[in-house]
Amino acid sequence: MTEAVLEVRGLNAWYGRAHILFDVDLTVRRGEVVALLGRNGAGKTTTFASLMGLVPSVTGSATFDGAAILGRPTHEIAGRGLGYVPEDRRIFTDLTVDENLMVGERPPRDGVPHWTPAILYDLFPNLAELRRRPGGHMSGGEQQMLTIARTLMGNPSLVLLDEPSEGLAPRIVEQMANALNAMKREGVTLILSEQNLHFSRLISDRATIIEGGRIRFDGTFAELDAQPAISATYLAV
């Protein structure tokens, strides 16, 4: 078994007075793709935001590449190689596609794939045609591709990918799945937060289900399929 890139133990998080996460544990090994599954409001986004230092009030521990990251400033966590693709994309709308990539650019990192605009434009051919277009003048799917590419420019050892298929048309979701699988073949380690079980199954090695701010299940998709009650309770309507 390869080494763990990320180990989260007993993570609790609050927004103001609302207690959102309860003792969340999470382990991700190098080269692995983990699906973090849950409905709206289950705590997926808060988990990512907590790891990125964007939630002021957290307790517990999180070790990323051997360093404790909880409570550290966001830029330092990102600088260590933890990539973050937020759910709301947050493209720099005034900046062109090229410039958006430039903001994400970091020096190469040992042991993880090194990304350049040329490689990324191969991976996301749509973007290659729009290099000089401002981010604000792109469709939702294109923005989603751009925000992933922008994060990859930082040569991250682990990417937190928040609901990449959300609000996208089926055709685009398909392209997204292909691109994510290509990333995986390049050796990118991922946590993929999703509501969409089928989509995540196409890409992920392992499933972790979060509901009500707690981890309810952690195992392979085969194990999940063996217990249909679990996805019925925590994911379906």
Binding site: P170, R171, E174, A177, N181, N196, H198, V237
Partner: peptide, 11 residues
């Protein structure tokens, strides 16, 4: 809510 494999070809 669950997604459907039928929506796209798993390549």
């Amino acid at each position: 809510y669950l997604g459907s494999g039928a929506l796209y070809a798993p390549e």
